[in-house]
């Protein structure tokens, strides 16, 4: 779609040439506090994350389950803003110029920041792509088209309810990769049925050459392995964020090796995605 090669394009090309699948790790920016959150972000590539999805916290995350809702609330309580999230990406970029960073969230904070200003600042910070949950293809003129014009990938969600008639419209302005939502539901829900996911990934691949990553409901290295066997990548968010919730400082309860435990889980998940696919 885009003439320019992005970090995402290069990453998926490299993974493909190595015969590997992408482990995509989601954490919320600023959760549980700016410094701990940066330490997690900074450690994810070495833990095996191929791509990082960084959540932009929002008060009303309508597609998210309790884990990521709580992550947003912790981050906002600790003073996170969209400006700080962009600064966090810029700081990460100073030390890592290859791991793609995709910002994921809801439209309102971006709309209030100002679409043109956001695209300019996101590109300058080293952001590679956007996933905006509440911008379907019908609203492409809002952010998707200007973002792609500005050099960002716009990664579209495809869901089990996206039928064949609708799929081409949804894929039309998608770039970087396609994010298949494995279930009808919210993040952190029940584990997806791998055979159904497999059918749907095949259905999407019949319509696009873009890589297809799968997310929602993947919590363990085994599930990540099973999903990676039928897709180009697996996204894990709630399970990582739950560890932050359990280990972060909470009132009088002090933080307990939050960064180390999140990165340990990340590396277990990465191993699940990267190891030989179990048939």
């Amino acid at each position: 779609m885009s003439a320019r090669q992005t970090r995402l394009d290069r990453k998926f090309a490299a993974l493909q040439s190595e015969g590997r699948k992408a482990f995509i790790a989601f954490v919320t920016a600023g959760d549980p506090d700016p410094e701990t959150s940066f330490a997690i972000l900074s450690g994810l590539p070495a833990a095996g994350a191929d791509i990082i999805e960084l959540g932009m916290p929002f008060t009303d995350p309508m597609a998210d389950g309790p884990s990521i809702q709580a992550a947003s609330q912790r981050a906002l309580k600790a003073g996170q803003t969209l400006e700080k999230t962009l600064a966090m990406v810029a700081r990460f970029r100073a030390e890592d110029d290859t791991t793609p960073v995709v910002l994921m969230g809801y439209y309102n904070p971006v709309f209030i920041y100002g679409v043109d200003r956001f695209i300019k600042d996101a590109v300058a910070a080293g952001v590679d792509g956007l996933i905006i949950v509440d911008l379907p293809a019908e609203e492409d003129s809002e952010l998707c088209l200007p973002a792609m014009e500005g050099g960002l990938n716009f990664i579209r969600l495809v869901s089990p309810t996206t039928d064949d008639a609708r799929l081409p419209n949804v894929l039309e302005n998608t770039s970087g990769f396609v994010y298949y939502v494995s279930i009808t539901g919210i993040t952190g829900s029940a584990a997806p049925d791998v055979s159904k996911v497999s059918d749907n990934v095949a259905r999407i691949k019949g319509r696009t050459n873009l890589p297809v990553a799968v997310g929602f409901g993947i919590r363990t290295p085994e599930q990540a392995n099973a999903i990676a066997s039928v897709a180009d990548g697996a996204v894990v968010g709630s399970a990582l964020v739950d560890v932050i919730g359990e280990t972060a400082k909470n009132g009088d309860k002090p933080a307990t090796d939050c960064v180390a435990r999140v990165l340990t889980l990340a590396s277990d998940l990465a191993e699940g995605v990267h190891k030989e696919i179990q048939k």
């Binding site: 949950v133 911008l135 379907p136 293809a137 969600l157 869901s159």
Partner: peptide, 18 residues
């Protein structure tokens, strides 16, 4: 497009769009 001037629209997740 479901707009009243600038307002309204269909800002929902893809799962709900159909």
């Amino acid at each position: 497009k479901g707009r009243f001037g600038h307002y309204g629209g269909r800002f929902v997740a893809e799962t709900l769009m159909p």
